[in-house]
Structure formats: C-alpha cells, structure tokens
Design a protein around this nucleic acid. Structure first.
Length: 580
DNA sequence: ATTTGCCGAAATTAGCTTTGCATAAAGCT
C-alpha cells in the first residue's frame, strides 16, 4: 500500500515539474523532479523514517537539493520553491486540472489571455469561435478539445477515486486505533467498492461518541471532529475529506454495519423483506414488531431474518441481489481465491520498478500459479518499451527462469508476454512473428486517445482481427477522475472480441478499473471472456487484484467467464485454441 | 537536478500523433 506522506510529497514535486515545464525550463531538470515523484509514489517505507535515519538520498533520483526540499516539506508542510513558482505562474496549476490541458496550453492561456481560473476560461469559451480565431495557435481543434475537457472537468465530481479513498481509510484506521477504538470497519461506498467515494463511512466499536470526538480532535490530520447525533461522529480531515463514523458496541455491530454500508436502494429492498417478517432496520439498529430493539452483532442475522442469503457488500446495489436465483448466482461469482494467475505485469525492462525475478517472487508469495510478464512495446518510448531484439532476449531470460523454478520445485510459472501498443490506425507496434513467439499478447491503447468514436472503433476492430491479440488491455484507457474513457461502439467491439476469442481485461488498478462494471455487464451480454489483471508495475501492486475482482463481481461475472481462474494447462489450451 | 565518472563536466527517455504547413514543431504518454 502506498504511503500517504510519500504521495503528498510526490504531488509537490509533480507540481514543481509541471510549472517548470510550463515555463520551458530544461527538460532534464523537469525530468529530475518527475523521477523523484515517481520514486516516492512507489516507495513502501514512510519517508519520515528515511529522513530520521538520514537515508533520503538512498531514494532513486534524490540528491542534495531535493533532499533539502523533502526535509522542508516534512518540517513545514510546504515548499517555498513551489510557492514562488505558483506566484510567478498564477493559474497554471488550476487550468491543468482540466483533462487535455497540459503545462504548455495552461501557460499560454494564462500569459496570452490572462485566464487564471476555470471561470475565466468558461467566459472566454463562451465568446465563441470568432474570438478564438483571432488568438494565434488556438486552433478550432485545440479549442474544441479544451471545451470537451472542461465539460469533463465539470462532470467530474469531487469524489475520490477508490484507490485514494482506500489509502485515506488506512491512515484513518490507525488514528482511530490510537484513539482507543477496538474495531474499525469500512462501510458505505468504500466497502461496496464503488469506483469513487464521496464521504468516507465507517463503523467503530467504542463506548461513547462524545468521548471519541474529543479524542480525535487532537490528531494532526483531523481538522474537526464533532458528534452529529447519538452514536455518530462527523470528522473533517485536513485533506478536506469528510468522514462519518458510526459508534456502536459489539452487540449491535451487525445491524449498524448493514445500515452504514447501504446503498440506499439495497436497504429499501432489504427493508421490504424485513418488514414482511415483522422487523424494521433503523439507524439505531434492528427493531422487532413490539418496538423493542434487538441487538444484532453479525450482518448475516439480518439477511437470514429477511429470508435472503448473505449478500456481500459489493453487490448491494438494489437491483440484482433480490432476484429469486441469487443464491445460485452468488455461488458462481468469481472470487479473489479463484484467481490463479495474473496476465499483465511490468518489470524494469520497461517502466516497472522491479527486476523480473523480484516480480515473479512477489507473485509466488501471493500464491499465484502463473504470471505473464507484459512489458511495453517499443512504441512506448518513454517507458523504454521493448523492440524485437530485447523482447527475444527477455523471452530467453524467462525460459531460463522457468527452468530454474522447475529445478527448485517452485510452482509459479512465468509466461512470456507483451503489452503491445495498438497504434492510431489499429496496427500493432511489433511484427507478427515477434508476437507469435510469445505465450500471451495484451494489446492496449496508449496514444491518440481523443480520436473520434468511429476511428477508435475501427482501430480496435482492426487490432482484434489481426488474430495476434489475446487480451484487450484496459479497453477504454480511462483514468478515474483524470482522463475520460475513449469513445467506441461497445457492441461492435465486444462482439468482435467474442468472435475472435479475445478476452477483455478488467484492469484491477483502482485508478483504472477498466472495463468498469457497466461495460462488463454489457460485454457479458455478448458472451465475452475476461482477464482480471493487476497491471503491476512494482511488487506490492499484486495486492490490487481485489479491486478488479470486486468490479467483476459488481457485474455478476462468473468464475468460468474469467480466463485467469483456469489452471495453467487449461489457460495454455485456451491461448492456443484462440490462435488457430 | 542528479548521476556518472572522475574530481569538472558531460549525459540524462524517446517515439507516436496531430496539426499547421508544406517539413517541422508541439503535445502526449
């Protein structure tokens, strides 16, 4: 799990890099800051600890200057250098929040047009095409792109992507434990694995809500903690995130947990069934016909009383979980323990942080039976993508590693793979012979993500019909809250994938969750097969698998629809058959 | 700004796509 402090410091350096880039400084200086930001994001140790031990310069890319800056941030919470840059380049970072507006465009908007806020930009866009036609280098295409980016920005809710919410939750869990609570559990949209989370909801065991609010008030990351009702503490974190804490005793935990988890439609359906049996679920617990509260420690009791099987949180959506055949469907759902292997992962051969052997070991430690190494292809220049020669060399390394694993009696097997770029016209980034020599080919979009619907559709169909792609990687290329999904004809592409025997990836990275639950539902209608992959770039990323599995479960994906639930021999069979 | 290599200075990640212009630059990842 990434460390929140490290992420905050990384963010500061990202902003420094953005502003330096806006101003047109040396690319190498910019790169130096970006590199450190990425190192920090991937660092498992809290930099407070590294600082205390004088080991900050052990971090890749950290030298004397950046070490000083990290210390300043840790000490004061700010970086004077960044504050100065912000003052010299007002509005640039704000405008860069808009998808499609990079450092250069933001710089030109601020300097050439005096636009500094989102509202300024909206006003300028409202002036229409005649206005923009008079501004040099703001072509209709660029202006249109900005307009669409702004719409996406406006649509974007202040909700946190699931991965970030999880990190905040883990931090808060520690704070609550330090404050003396004996149990902390997530609830609300976080527990339901919704792709974004608005407020954090959680349930804790503690004797007294007022007392808990008082204890939390002293914590550094807590801005405000107050009781908002009986057994209910509302917390605002310094990050601005708002948290509802339900304070209960163990005896009533189950009922409170169901209530706090929701969602609203699910609770409504549940209420109807409980009501038929003579019970009411309230904010304060379960109440019998006689109006007497009944302590319920376990969630399962509630579902039993409602005449339902236990409904796991991720499928509490209010629509499908009340169907008569739900018990059978639940039994068939793919689960984390069904996943036998991971079919997309990166190493330091391209943009991963760890050597191949380390990634394999991390996969083995997590009980995976197989791991596909799928580094980027050469088209990802920035990721040091593999060309034909390096790919062949890596294949040999993998073959040797498999022999060694075999000798040492270690079960995990390594599949030689690639994440090959699907180029703007649908051609693959490597020749057919190179791809045919591999065990598994993941084909992904990484460039030209603003193409029209028709072009993307044609492009994907073409890639699918090469017969060389086994898995369509993160099919929409979205980044939750940052980059919109590409637009394509879902039906045409999903049908073509089914016909060609191409599996659709459910990318488990919580910044992607791609396909999302809605697209997965759609794809299932056409009989699609899925691969749930972490797309790991460093060892602890393998822990992200649960996010992918939960997303699949939200769309009621059965384990037999997921190719990486198959034992290795069967998977190999599937890959071979697809290639005929 | 950092690393490498060597003690001060050079090298550092690179190709694809689009656009505007007609061969090259900017932006993106």
């Amino acid at each position: 799990m990434p460390v929140l402090t490290n992420l905050r410091v990384a963010r500061v350096f990202e902003q420094v890099a953005d502003l330096l880039e806006a101003r047109g400084e040396s690319p190498f200086k910019i790169q130096a800051y970006r590199r450190v930001a990425r190192s920090l994001e991937r660092l498992e140790e809290d930099i407070h600890l590294l600082d205390a031990e004088g080991r900050l310069t052990d971090i890749p890319g950290v030298g004397k200057e950046i070490e000083k800056k990290i210390r300043e941030i840790l000490r004061t919470g700010k970086l004077g250098y960044l504050e100065r840059l912000k003052a010299e380049l007002p509005g640039v970072l704000t405008l860069m929040e808009i998808p499609g507006v990079g450092p250069k465009t933001a710089y030109r908007l601020t300097t050439e047009l005096g636009i500094r806020t989102i509202e300024d930009l909206e006003a300028a866009l409202a002036k229409g095409d005649e206005f923009w036609a008079r501004v040099p280098r703001f072509t209709p295409h660029l202006v249109d792109n900005i307009r669409r980016g702004l719409e996406a920005y406006r649509r974007r809710s202040p909700r946190l992507p699931l991965g970030q919410a999880t990190i905040f939750f883990e931090e808060l869990r520690h704070t609550l434990v330090r404050a003396g609570v004996s149990r902390v559990e997530p609830a609300g949209s976080l527990r339901r694995y919704e792709e974004t989370v608005g407020d954090l909801d959680l349930v804790v065991v503690f004797p007294n809500a007022e007392d808990l609010a008082r204890r939390l008030t002293g914590s550094p990351e807590v801005e405000l903690a107050e009781t908002a009702g009986p057994g209910w503490v509302r917390v605002r974190l310094a990050s601005g995130l708002s948290v509802d804490v339900y304070v209960v005793d163990e005896a009533g935990f189950g009922a409170a947990w169901v209530w706090a988890t929701g969602n609203r439609d699910h609770l409504e359906g549940l209420q109807a069934r409980l009501g038929a049996a003579g019970y009411t679920l309230t904010e304060h617990g379960l109440v019998g016909l006689d109006g007497i509260p009944l302590p319920v420690a376990e969630e399962g009791v509630i579902y039993e009383l409602a005449g339902l099987p236990y409904i796991p949180p991720e499928v509490r959506g209010g629509r499908d979980e009340f169907a008569p055949d739900v018990a059978r469907r639940l039994a068939e759902l793919v689960g984390l323990t069904d996943i036998r292997g991971d079919l997309q992962s990166h190493t330091d051969w391209s943009d991963g942080s760890a050597p191949l052997e380390v990634m394999v070991q991390a996969a083995a430690e997590r009980g995976l039976e197989y791991l596909a190494i799928s580094d980027h292809s050469a088209g990802r220049g920035n990721a040091r993508g593999l060309d034909v020669g390096r790919l062949a060399a890596q294949r040999e390394v993998i073959a040797a590693l498999n022999e060694e694993l075999d000798r040492r009696g270690i079960r995990v097997r390594v599949l030689a793979g690639i994440e090959v770029d699907i180029r703007a016209d649908g051609h693959l980034d490597l020749p057919a012979e190179a791809l045919k020599a591999l065990d598994v080919v993941v084909g992904s979009l990484h460039t030209a993500l603003t193409q029209s619907r028709d072009r993307v559709t044609e492009r994907l169909l073409r890639a699918i019909r090469t017969g060389l792609v086994d898995i369509l990687g993160h099919p929409t290329a979205r980044l939750i809250g940052t980059r919109e999904p590409v637009d394509f004809d879902r039906e045409a592409v999903f049908r073509a994938a089914v016909e060609a025997g191409v599996a659709l990836e459910i990318n488990a990275n919580p910044e992607r969750l791609d396909l999302n639950a809605e697209d997965i539902r759609r794809a299932r209608e056409f009989g699609a097969q899925f691969a749930i992959n972490t797309d790991a770039h460093y060892p602890s990323n393998f822990d992200l698998m649960k996010f992918g599995v939960m997303t699949a479960r939200k769309a009621w994906v059965r384990r037999d629809e997921v190719i990486n639930t198959r034992p290795l021999a069967e998977l190999r069979e599937w890959l071979r058959r697809r290639r005929r």
